[in-house]
Design a protein around this nucleic acid. Structure first.
Length: 834
RNA sequence: GCUCCAGUGGCGGAAUCGGUAGACGCGUUGGACUUAAAAUCCAAUUGGGCGUAUAACCCAGUGCCAGUUCAAGUCUGGCCUGGAGCACCA
């Protein structure tokens, strides 16, 4: 065995061997229990970055650990390969985005293999390939049949730089999630997925997700935004055309209904023109035009002073008979509730600001206990007792909410209402590089889905990528015109493609049955593998991908395609990889190229380091010195093995757990105990919280212990060799999920059969992991005063006796009264004195 | 403004149930080996009393202030700071 560590050589050798022999192939049929370990699949942007390295290493270690522990492990990988970067690159070079994508996939595949990830490459899934997007389109049609997909004209988010619309989830602070441009409002007819139909279940089932962090769950709960309230309908008393009209409002504060002094509708409110008097028409029109021009950012800014104009008409409050004016103001949102708000300036801060500015009247209806009936300077929005509210006076407002809504129900002008903040998911994209929406528009028959046997609707190849300002797909001379599947007459194809988040909402299902060309996946196989036992990925998908995938699972369940409710039982959101305290990014110039690390130190060093310094969920600060340290450690491990190669017992390698080792020396006992403690500690750290940083510190402790043991020994006798063999072989197995190459090479050099990665996990013996002596801690009034080595089997009485016998304790309790002593078996004695 | 998470040496971070605070590593300092360097190995490294050697001892200490307890990094209440998410959602 070579005495020096040569990672570049051994890693290439084993990478090739594993790849050619499909060592990590997973069969669907097995007697073993299943375990599905999954990383969020990458976008093939060109090269791996350190975030990928971290993500995939974490999942890989979990997959390998589970496999060694007797599970049939599914650990797949694929490519989220539709999307704008490929199309932008294509437009820049007037080339096919498919070529760019394929090249990137080829390069990154090599990198993933180099990193030593135990993927079953036969299940690779690529969302931009027709054999995948055919099924994306098929699923779209199933949702369409179920009424979960529909087309409507709506105000949508438009990103001018990406030249496409965006879903609500993809607008961050009024800006595009991808390019950071300010999003504009546009009125377009677009395809929507009815995710709101599942709002309640998506919220409720968060409780089932015990293996998800609270941060992600609350983010989703907030995004869904369930609230309880009431709808009230206010009759219009002076509609200009004499029509009988009503304005419905949604409110969470029905208890304040007697305090309404005006009513606001959104500028886009559908009946606004009918509610405007001729005298006010001009001002209202101008206000609406202004609102339309404004960007989302301007409009949503909360510190902007509120503006609005009166419509000239009035409503009647059915509770009081009071007449109050109608206004339009852009602080009312057309998409939420009914698009109209009942304004109670005394008990709502927004209404208060507005009323102050326009000198609208105020009426106090909830008593502020600190400052009775005074709402001059600010709105009182807390709990209280009602006043000025007729028969409800004196009632607590929490009760009044119900009672007042009930009255509206009984008298027919309102009802109880649950409202969600979640909006339907806009999935149309005016772009080329995505799955075409499988729909045609017939001149006679209208919107028609493409029949399933004509899928996939292929992306046209005869397009011009050099166009500006429109989707390249529209330049195809062959794509647009087609025939209607119903009447056979002329029809045109839908030119929009689907949001790529549709493609990524079901890929984890496809892995279970990736090569099925008859169906999107076999139901039994999917039911067998899913849900995913451990999902690992970035927190940036807390809402987007994770909410969409949860919705898809539920919708596909209701289409009869699978039998479970949630796709991911456990979720680990790993932290970011930082350098010098900030996120690695090309613009900051603080990136580290994984290839360089592989080349200079090897993939094992990269794997070890990325797991070593921080727990997976926390941010990880990359440091060159840290890499160096990990590389030195692997060298140290290698030297330990190599220098002892001829001392290793073949019997122990063949059966590390089975060889009973008789020891006659304390040093040997101690080392065996350290090994058992390491097995226990490492196993628990991985099982409990995936605490790989402490796993690695335990590797180091074990290696240090073996070196220390060796330093005490001269010539080794047979007993010593057996002990050493047990320690080294156990160490290699324990390290094998992380240092995949080094341990494999060492295993072979020592004469091990097959692959170390096929060997079962180590087991520990609780008795051997225990020490024969313990350190008894003696405290006085809770402060440590002495430590005594005692036998581990010592009784409580003896512990107390030992403690009181300590010279230090004797001196300290001299002349004081011992009030009581607390004895914690096996740990400490606390003497309370006065 | 609302919601969630976090706060421990110079740094990353350890610390099952409340029971020895600072494991393991990085860095730093000193030393050994070497003609020299690299590599490797050994030792020290929370602060203060403390200033010279040796050996020891004492005090304080996990963002702040209280509380519960024999005992609090850990539990409770109230703050402070940082991060993340949401936000004119009626």
């Amino acid at each position: 065995m070579k005495q020096s560590y040569y990672p570049q050589e051994i890693e290439k050798k084993w990478m090739k061997f594993w790849d050619e022999n499909k060592v990590f192939k997973t069969e669907n049929n097995s007697d073993k229990p299943k375990y599905y370990a999954l990383s969020m699949f990458p976008y093939p942007s060109g090269k791996l970055h350190m975030g990928h390295v971290r993500n995939y290493t974490i999942t890989d270690v979990i997959a390998r650990f589970k496999k060694a522990n007797g599970f049939n492990v599914l650990h797949p990988i694929g490519w989220d390969s539709f999307g704008l970067p490929a199309e932008n690159a294509a437009m820049k070079h007037n080339a096919d985005p498919e070529k760019w994508t394929d090249e990137n996939i080829a390069y990154m595949t090599q990198q993933l293999k180099m990193l030593g990830l135990s993927y079953d490459w036969d299940r690779e899934v690529t969302t931009c390939k027709p054999d995948y997007y055919k099924w994306t389109q098929w699923i779209f049609l199933q949702l369409y049949k179920k009424g979960l997909v529909y087309k409507k004209e709506a105000a949508v988010n438009w990103c001018p730089d990406c030249g496409t619309v965006l879903a609500n989830e993809q607008v961050i602070d009024g800006k595009c999630w991808r390019c950071d441009s300010e999003v504009e409002k546009k009125y377009l007819s677009q395809w929507f997925v009815k995710i709101t139909e599942y709002a309640d279940e998506l919220l409720k089932d968060l409780d089932l997700l015990k293996g998800w962090g609270d941060n992600v769950k609350t983010m989703q709960a907030n995004w869904i935004g369930k609230s309880h309230g009431a709808i009230f309908r206010f009759p219009v008393v002076d509609a200009p055309n004499g029509e009988k009209m009503e304005v419905p409002v949604y409110t969470t504060r029905p208890d304040t209904v007697h305090g309404i002094t005006y009513l606001v509708v959104a500028p886009e409110y559908k009946d606004i023109e009918k509610l405007t008097t001729p005298e006010n028409k001009e001002a209202v029109e101008q206000y609406r035009a202004n609102a339309r021009k404004m960007s989302e950012i301007e409009r949503l800014s909360t510190d902007r002073t509120k503006t609005g104009v009166p419509l000239g008409t009035h409503c009647k409050n059915p509770f009081t008979g009071e007449i109050f004016p109608l206004w339009t103001a852009d602080y009312a949102l057309v998409e939420y509730g009914t698009g109209a708000v009942m304004a109670v300036p005394t008990h709502d801060t927004r209404d208060f600001d507005f009323a102050k500015k326009y000198n609208l009247p105020m009426k106090v209806v909830i008593q502020n206990p600190q400052n009775p009936s005074n709402c001059e300077n600010e709105a009182y929005t807390d709990e209280g007792v009602l006043l000025n509210s007729n028969e409800f006076n004196g009632m607590k407002n929490t009760e009044a909410k119900k009672a007042i809504t009930q009255k509206a129900v009984d008298e027919g002008f309102g009802e109880f209402k649950t409202q969600y903040r979640l909006r339907d998911w806009l999935i149309s994209r005016q772009r080329y590089w995505g799955a075409p929406i499988p729909v045609v528009y017939c001149d006679k028959c209208g919107i028609q889905p493409v029949p399933e046997d004509r899928l996939p609707v292929l992306l046209p190849k005869d397009v011009d990528f050099s166009v500006v300002g429109k989707s390249p797909i529209t330049t195809s001379p062959t794509f647009k015109d087609t025939v209607c599947p119903i009447c056979g007459g002329h029809a045109t194809r839908e030119m929009d493609t689907m949001d790529t988040f549709i493609c990524s909402s079901w890929y984890y299902l496809r892995y279970a049955d990736a090569n099925n060309d008859k169906e999107c996946f076999n139901k039994d196989i999917v039911n067998k593998w899913l849900p995913v036992d451990q999902y690992v990925g970035g927190i940036e998908h807390a809402i987007l991908h994770l909410l969409y995938s949860r919705f898809f699972t539920k919708a596909l369940r209701d289409c009869g395609l699978l039998d479970f409710d949630e796709p991911f039982s456990n979720l680990l959101t790993q932290g970011m990889v930082l350098k010098d305290g900030s996120k690695m990014s090309k613009s900051k110039g603080n990136t580290v190229d994984p290839d360089e690390i592989f080349e200079n130190y090897g993939a094992d060093t990269a794997r070890l380091f990325i797991l070593s310094d921080s727990p997976p969920a926390r941010d990880f600060d990359w440091s060159d010195a840290g890499v160096e340290g990990c590389y030195k450690f692997l060298n140290r491990v290698w030297r330990l093995v190599a220098s002892n190669a001829e001392n290793i017992s073949h019997a122990v390698i063949a059966n590390p757990q089975g060889v009973a080792i008789h020891t006659t020396e304390k040093a040997n006992d101690d080392l065996i105990r350290t090994v058992h403690m390491s097995i226990k500690g490492i196993t628990n750290d991985i099982t409990n919280e995936f605490q790989f940083n402490t796993v690695i510190s335990k590797y180091r402790e074990l290696v240090n212990a073996i070196y220390d043991w060796q330093a005490k020994k001269g010539e080794l006798n047979q007993e010593d060799k057996n002990v050493l063999s047990f320690a080294i072989v156990s160490m290699l197995k324990l390290m094998s999920p992380v240092a995949v190459y080094l341990t494999e090479e060492a295993w072979h050099e020592l004469g091990g059969e097959g692959s170390i990665h096929e060997q079962p996990w180590c087991v520990w013996d609780e008795n051997l992991a225990k020490s024969s002596s313990i350190t008894l801690v003696v405290q006085i009034n809770g402060k440590v005063k002495d430590k005594i080595e005692v036998d581990s089997e010592i009784s409580k009485d003896e512990m107390e006796k030992e403690a009181l016998n300590s010279e230090k304790v004797k001196a300290l309790i001299e002349g004081k009264t011992v009030v009581k002593t607390i004895v914690v078996p096996g740990k400490l004695v606390n003497i309370v004195i006065k």
